[in-house]
C-alpha cells in the first residue's frame, strides 16, 4: 500500500501554492539505471573484459614479462605453453623474430585502444556537431550537412583508407585522424534526426522563450539528451575502427613494424600460419574478444539508459 500522508480535502478554496501530491517520490532515473545495470549480464561481462584490456594497456610496462621489441633469434617460433615444446617462460610463445608474443599482445592493446578510442572520439565530435547543427538550424545549413553525409556515404571506406594511409606512411596520428574522418556519418545521421524531433519539443521552446542563446540551447538542452545515443554509436564505431585498423595493419598500410599492433601481429604470423597457427590465432582472438566486449557493453548501455528505445 502507499504511504501517502492523509490530508483533509478543502473544497472551494484550496490555499494557493499548496501541492497536494508531494509525498510520493518515484526513484530517480539514475537509481533506476543503477538497478538495471546490476541485473544486466551482457553489460557486466562486456565492461569487465574491456576493463581488463584497458588495465593491461595502461600497466603494460609492469605486466609484460619481456620487452616487446627485443629480438632473440635463438628463441624463434617457440610454441605457447600448451604446445608440444612450450614452456612457462613464454606463455604465448615467440614469433619469427624471437619476440615474446604475450608482451607484444599486451603492448598491442595500447595501440588498438588508442586508435579505436581516439578515432571514435574524433568521429563523434565531427558527426555530432554536424548532426546537431543541421538538425537544429535546418534550411541551408541542413542541406549542406545532408550533402556532406551523402558524400561521405558514397566513399568506399577501406579503399580510401588504403590509398591515404599508403601516402601518409604509417604514422599512428595520421591513421587515427583518417579513421576518425571516415566514420562520422553514423553519428551525424542519428543526431540530426534526433535534434529535428527535439527542436519542436516544448522544453526547447521554453528555453528559447527564457532568452537562451542558440549555442546555450545546443549545449545545455539538446546535447545532454543525445549523449546516450552518441555513446552507443561510439561503442559500435570503436569496434569497427579497431577492425579497420587491424585490416589496414594486416595489409601493411596501417601501423608499421616493429610497433606491436594486433592487426600487424596477425599479418606477421601469416607467413608461418600453417605450421605455427597460434601466431595468428592469439592476436585474432584478442581482436575478437575486444570487439565483442565493446558491442556487449554498448548494447548494455542502451538497455540500461533507454529501455523503452530497445529494438
Amino acid at each position: 500500500m502507499s504511504t501517502i500522508v492523509t490530508r483533509t480535502a478543502v473544497s472551494g478554496a484550496a490555499p494557493a501554492g499548496r501541492s497536494d501530491d508531494f509525498d510520493t517520490l518515484a526513484p530517480s532515473p539514475k537509481a533506476l539505471m543503477r538497478k538495471r545495470a546490476k541485473g544486466h549480464v551482457g553489460l557486466i561481462i562486456g565492461t569487465t573484459i574491456i576493463a581488463v584490456i584497458v588495465l593491461m594497456a595502461v600497466f603494460a610496462p609492469l605486466i609484460a614479462p619481456y620487452d616487446p621489441y627485443a629480438q632473440d633469434l635463438s628463441r624463434r617460433l617457440i610454441d605457447p605453453v600448451w604446445g608440444a615444446k612450450g614452456s612457462w617462460d613464454n606463455i604465448f610463445g615467440t614469433d619469427a623474430l624471437g619476440r615474446d608474443v604475450l608482451s607484444r599482445l599486451i603492448y598491442g592493446a595500447r595501440i588498438s585502444l588508442l586508435v579505436g578510442f581516439t578515432a571514435a572520439v574524433i568521429a563523434g565530435i565531427i558527426g555530432t556537431a554536424l548532426g546537431i547543427l543541421g538538425g537544429y538550424y535546418g534550411g541551408k545549413v541542413d542541406a549542406f550537412v545532408v550533402y556532406l553525409i551523402n558524400v561521405k556515404l558514397a566513399l568506399p571506406v577501406i579503399l580510401v583508407a588504403l590509398s591515404v594511409s599508403s601516402i601518409s606512411g604509417g604514422s599512428i596520428m595520421a591513421l587515427i585522424i583518417l579513421l576518425g574522418f571516415l566514420t562520422w556519418d553514423r553519428y551525424a545521421v542519428v543526431t540530426r534526426s534526433m535534434t529535428q524531433q527535439m527542436r519542436e519539443r516544448e522544453f526547447i521552446m521554453s528555453s528559447k522563450a527564457a532568452g537562451a542563446s542558440n549555442s546555450r540551447i545546443l549545449w545545455r538542452e539538446i546535447l545532454p539528451n543525445l549523449m546516450n545515443q552518441v555513446i552507443i554509436i561510439a561503442s559500435l564505431d570503436m569496434a569497427l575502427i579497431i577492425l579497420v585498423e587491424a585490416a589496414l595493419s594486416f595489409l601493411g598500410l596501417g601501423i608499421r613494424p616493429p610497433t606491436p599492433s594486433w592487426g600487424l601481429m596477425v599479418s606477421e604470423g601469416r607467413a608461418v600460419m600453417f605450421f605455427k597457427p597460434y601466431l595468428i590465432m592469439i592476436p585474432g582472438a584478442a581482436i575478437f574478444l575486444l570487439v565483442i566486449a565493446i558491442n556487449m557493453a554498448g548494447d548494455g548501455i542502451r538497455d540500461v539508459t533507454s529501455p523503452e528505445g530497445r529494438g
Binding site: M1, A9, V10, D20
Partner: peptide, 25 residues
C-alpha cells in the same frame, strides 16, 4: 471563489487492497 480540488494522488494498486481505495484523499 476557487474551484474545488481533490488533494493527494491515486494509491498504489500493487499488493493486497484493503478498505476503501479513496480514503487517503
Amino acid at each position: 471563489g476557487r474551484l474545488g480540488s481533490i488533494p493527494g494522488i491515486v494509491p498504489s494498486l500493487v499488493g493486497n487492497q484493503r478498505g476503501c481505495s479513496f480514503r487517503n484523499r
